[in-house]
Design a protein around this nucleic acid. Structure first.
Length: 454
RNA sequence: GGAGAGAUGGCUGAGUGGUCGAAAGCGCUCCCCUGCUAAGGGAGUAAGGGUGAUUUAAGCCCUUCGAGGGUUCGAAUCCCUCUCUCUCCGCCA
């Protein structure tokens, strides 16, 4: 059995939840144990009691409604037979009384349902069995590495210094016109970022079969609830004051995955693969003091995002391939990186399993996240009411959704600068980007522009 | 921003207070006939939830006609609010 969607009916408590409601009702203890792996504490006893109460109220309510329906039908019949009969009068009195009871029952049921529904929305996804235990990022597992760490014969500069030396990266201008955590890129770096974006889009669309999509950068509450950013993480988002209840997207995942909302895909249409470039806006609330310097953590950054919709059986392999697609960008950019399997405690709210791609940053002497590739299984699909069916006759079931950055352009830019710099502050351009930059092979240090390739 | 029209099942489209979960057509499924890439006849065909049954039953019940609220014993049908779509005007990259 499937849940009804969204706010369609107040009589189902299953709307917008993430994990399988049947499973949860049937065996809250097991679910609680599973969620405990990611540090989420769920009171199974409390839940069972709430659910039992809700169910009782539902039964009562439905019974009263049945009585009401039958009574009303009888009124209709009596009216046709004899509008003056005393039986009709009695019947109406009885029903008025019944209506009062119904009102009470309805209220009680609604409250019980609302409590549970609000609770459901805060439950994170169940983890894939392959996700290792662990409380935080220190327990993440390295899967593999790629590329070679740069071996500088000099003291490498960080991207801020590199960018400012060539007058192509201006943080103070940005902070004056807006505030902290913004940047102005100029000249060759503005163009380099655009080149990165174009390269990534062309790669994914051209070689890996993704359909490029252009999507709204403002989305409504429902969309964000569908992908899991709401209701729990509203403080991470920018909400606009005017117009409807809109938010700036924190990632293209939101609008792109919502392409599947309320849809029933035929099996033959799947998998869906979409790629989109959008700016991303994040309030970064709670990150005060972290990564203050430079382009690592900004309120606005550019990202190319990959999204897939698959039939359930295909999602694990699709996930592996998705990681490879994102990874291939790093390979072609000739950047050193590693692939990490996130542990239970570090895996995101909506995800069942996540691989992070981390790029080497010489200025920090460590790897930093540049892509996060997740399999959400049916978690988002439930919230989005996104389904598929074998053929037009068969019963629809939830799709699986996946996404991953492919890649974050801002971080790719700074990784290029830092890893490919020379002693004079110049930066070599990897071959894959040269066609997008008029063929230049390097950015010359200390000047404002790149030099033509020889 | 102003004016108007609309939102019903997979689609088209009826339906202005009770027997409407909803006519009809299309599509689809099954069967029959025919017998050849045609036509005809019949039946079935919304979704979700609950209950039920000793393995996924039938039956029964509840809910759903854009969303939310109201009137009523009873609402697809009346009233209010909102959202969206379409047309016209204005403005605009």
């Amino acid at each position: 059995m499937r849940q009804s969607r969204g706010a369609l009916s107040p009589d189902t408590t299953s709307s917008d939840l993430m994990i399988d409601i049947k499973l949860l009702r049937q065996d809250p203890v097991t679910i609680a144990a599973q969620l405990a792996r990611r540090g989420f504490r769920m009171d199974a006893d409390w839940y069972a009691a709430q659910e039992a109460q809700r169910k009782g109220l539902q039964t009562t309510l439905e019974d009263l409604r049945k009585q009401r329906n039958e009574g009303s039908r009888k009124v209709g019949e009596l009216k046709v037979q004899n509008p003056e009969s005393s039986e009709l009068g009695h019947q109406l009195e009885t029903l008025t009384l019944l209506d009062r009871k119904l009102e009470t029952a309805e209220l009680a049921f609604r409250q019980a349902s609302a409590t549970l529904e609000a609770f459901h929305l805060t439950l994170p996804n169940l983890l894939d069995p392959g996700v290792p235990d662990g409380a935080d990022e220190s327990a993440n597992q390295e899967v593999r590495r790629g590329g070679f760490l740069p071996d500088f014969g000099f003291q490498p500069r960080d991207h801020v210094e590199l960018g400012e030396r060539i007058q192509a990266m201006d943080f103070s201008a940005a902070s004056e016109m807006t505030g902290a955590r913004f940047v102005v890129l100029k000249g060759i770096l503005a163009r380099l970022q655009r080149a990165l974006i174009s390269f990534m889009l062309d790669l994914h669309a051209g070689e890996y079969g993704y359909e490029e999509v252009y999507v709204p950068h403002l989305v409504n509450r429902q969309s964000l609830t569908g992908t899991g950013q709401l209701p729990k993480f509203e403080s991470d988002l920018f909400r606009v004051e005017s117009g409807a209840d809109w938010f700036l997207i924190p990632t293209a995942e939101v609008p792109v995955t919502n392409l599947a909302r309320n849809r029933v895909f035929l099996k033959s249409e799947l998998p869906k693969r979409w790629v989109a470039h959008t700016p991303c806006y994040r309030s970064e609330a709670g990150s005060y003091g972290k990564d203050l310097k430079g382009m690592i953590r900004q309120h606005q950054f550019e990202k190319v995002e990959l999204v897939q919709v698959t039939v359930p059986n295909d999602s694990p392999s699709a996930h592996e391939r998705l990681v490879e697609h994102a990874e291939s960008v790093l390979k072609r950019l000739e950047l050193p990186y590693r692939v990490m399997l996130l542990c239970a405690g570090d895996t995101g709210f909506a995800s069942a399993k996540t691989y992070d791609l981390e790029v080497w940053l010489p200025s920090q002497n460590r790897y930093r996240e540049i892509s996060s590739c997740s399999n959400f299984r049916d978690f988002q699909a439930r919230r989005l009411n996104a389904r598929w069916r074998e053929d037009p006759k068969s019963k629809p079931d939830w799709v699986h959704t996946l996404n991953g950055s492919g890649l974050a352009a801002g971080r790719a830019l700074l990784a290029l600068l830092e890893n490919r710099q020379d002693e004079g502050g110049g930066v070599s351009i990897p071959p894959c980007l040269r066609p997008y930059l008029g063929g230049i092979r390097e950015i010359r240090g200390g000047s404002g522009a790149g030099i033509p390739g020889e």
